[in-house]
Nucleic acid binder design. Structure first.
Lengths: 351, 351
DNA sequence: CTGAAAGCGCTAACAT
DNA sequence: ATGTTAGCGCTTTCAG
């Protein structure tokens, strides 16, 4: 059983229909007039052979590939997979195809991938993680990226200071303030934070915002209530263990992100603390895990739909050869669930 | 600021170096001899312009795209993202690029995507979910897929009876038996199962295997201890709620997959049941969530590495124009964690 | 060792 | 309305 028969070409079809290749092309694309009779005939033959024009050839001719590149550190991370799902789904509708690459946040990998995507002539590159979130990036790397951006438009899904490319991101300050306010309203006055790593911009910023908010609401946050331990679930677990081992501890904890919050939740459950009253917990991002785990995790959610609409808009505009789009900041949405409420079941109807 | 300068071609380089395009091509590919002097020169100019040959043009010429298509129902599902991560990482090393498409398991979408990927001339299509797992697939659809497989080799990551294409899957029977044996060894005699949906082959089969195993070990399983409710975490939650509301219930529960198990775990925690003794729980797939959540979830894991090695092997062989590869069955690996052990902390050191 | 020329599959002027 | 031709950017015979 052989793997693949020789690919048919428009010429094969043309010959069989007794017309020229251009005519076939015309019925294929719908550009230019074709006699009804011939059109029917060609269509029939096309159908018969289930002919599909090579989009490689088309891309070469048209000099647009109708594909975009998407770089994530690790697609296994729910934040990125959610983002990708939304973006890919929308782009597919628009006739685009998405090449997904995992960079592991390694700088050389990111650069290699960027090159590879350039070679593939993707029309847009969506870049997340790694260098983008680096608090102290190498200037050389930044310049490299700008150079690449000059050839194929790059869009980042977080703030990327120092680089002239289109950036879409959430209003994280607002998000953090929403959470802290919520903590305050629930009667908490001692706030801690877990997760993150200080050479990552978002982690740094979220911590700053937390401190600002805590200060503004006249709450307390001791320096040993800020426990980093990274971005993973395990990191959340470790951080929460440390926090709970303290002689005096906060009554509300902001987790760097939802993944960390899930890890932390385990520990709280394990220690048998009463969620919401004895210890409140909130995350950030709005991954679906937060609502499907018991008890729901309070979080401030990214507007995935808005983000991906913007990506699509960007891609489409690119096609039309337009200018760079403006950076865009999207509001975040507070979602209160079991981890910050006294009455767990009231807010998390299991069913 | 304009978006993109005109793409350079080998001709531009050639002109600047005072050589022919073929020479440039030769230094680019390393095929054919080139005078050292000229080579140096060309290289320098290539470097200067940071020239990258168009892989679209290359693909057209070479009639191979060095890209593969990967279809999943939903990349947000940890099983698929884990699979994708492994596969993509390995293929990238081999110089391949992966187009990822979410099908939502919708049949028309799947077909559209398949067509699209054919047009893109991907060298291999990895197909998961949807039609592949359909217990009662439409014969027409099967034939369509076979036809496509005739043009571009398709590889499925689960059993796909009735279709002649390369298939890689886990030995799920062995997996289920491992779990049931483990339950038995832990002293359980009443077994239930949650999750799944009977028109999905894997769900059907796992249930059958469970019943066989339960029978073989002389255990008990009542029909109302088999609660479906789908594949999601919420489904797991619902199913476990139902199970717990029964007057008499099993002491050990096999969840269709890890995601369902996570959902079920919430409910057990909520009801304050003692995991492992009062109620044991095990899942299937081996997604990383099972080890990062507290207490670790016992599961029987897919060998992601072996799967992806095989995919890579398949892709590479395809390139060499070889025959179809044989179907391959991979063993699953039982991993015992907190949800089936009396002493939770012993098996799940929180560190 | 190197260049000219052809061609991958398609589409878009340009002629007719 | 239709066919001829050229060319997208690259590689690869084939001569030289």
């Amino acid at each position: 059983m052989k793997s693949s028969e020789r690919r048919m070409t428009v010429y094969d079809i043309a010959k069989e229909a007794g017309v020229s290749a251009s005519t076939v092309s015309r019925v294929l694309t719908g550009n230019g007039p074709v006699n009804e009779q011939k059109k029917e005939l060609v269509l029939k033959i096309l159908e018969k052979h289930e002919f599909r024009p090579s989009s490689v050839a088309r891309s070469l001719k048209a000099r647009r590939s109708r594909s975009v590149g998407f770089i994530v550190p690790d697609i296994t991370n729910p934040f990125f997979s959610s983002m990708f799902l939304e973006v890919e789904t929308r782009l597919a509708v628009a006739g685009y195809t998405v090449i997904l690459c995992n960079s592991e946040s390694r700088r050389e990998r990111e650069l290699e991938i960027l090159q590879m995507l350039m070679e593939k002539e993707v029309e847009v590159i969506v870049l997340t993680g790694g260098i983008v979130d680096d608090l102290f990036p190498q200037p050389k790397m930044l310049r490299d990226i700008e150079k690449i951006n000059h050839r194929v438009p790059i869009m980042t899904l977080s703030k990327f200071p120092g680089v002239r490319c289109t950036q879409a991101y959430s209003d994280e300050k607002q998000g953090v303030f929403d959470i802290v306010r919520h903590f305050h309203e629930e009667g908490h006055r001692k706030i801690g934070m877990i997760g993150g790593q200080m050479d990552v911009r978002q982690a740094f910023e979220r911590k700053i915002y937390l401190l600002e908010a805590v200060n503004q609401y006249g709450m307390e946050c001791r320096s040993n209530w800020l426990v980093e331990e990274g971005f993973s679930m395990q990191g959340g677990t470790r951080a929460m263990e440390k926090l709970l081992s303290l002689p005096e501890r906060p009554s509300a904890v902001f987790a760097y992100n939802d993944v960390v919050a899930v890890g932390a939740l385990s520990v709280i459950e394990k220690h048998g603390l009463k969620l919401g009253r004895e210890l409140a917990l909130a995350g950030m991002d709005g991954i679906s895990l937060t609502e499907s785990i018991y008890p729901g995790i309070t979080t401030v959610a990214v507007d995935y739909a808005a983000f991906s609409d913007y990506v699509v808009e960007f891609v489409m505009n690119q096609g039309k050869g337009e200018q760079y789009k403006e950076d865009r900041v999207f509001p975040m949405h507070l979602i209160c669930r079991g981890t910050t409420n006294v009455n767990r079941d009231a807010v998390h109807p299991v069913r």
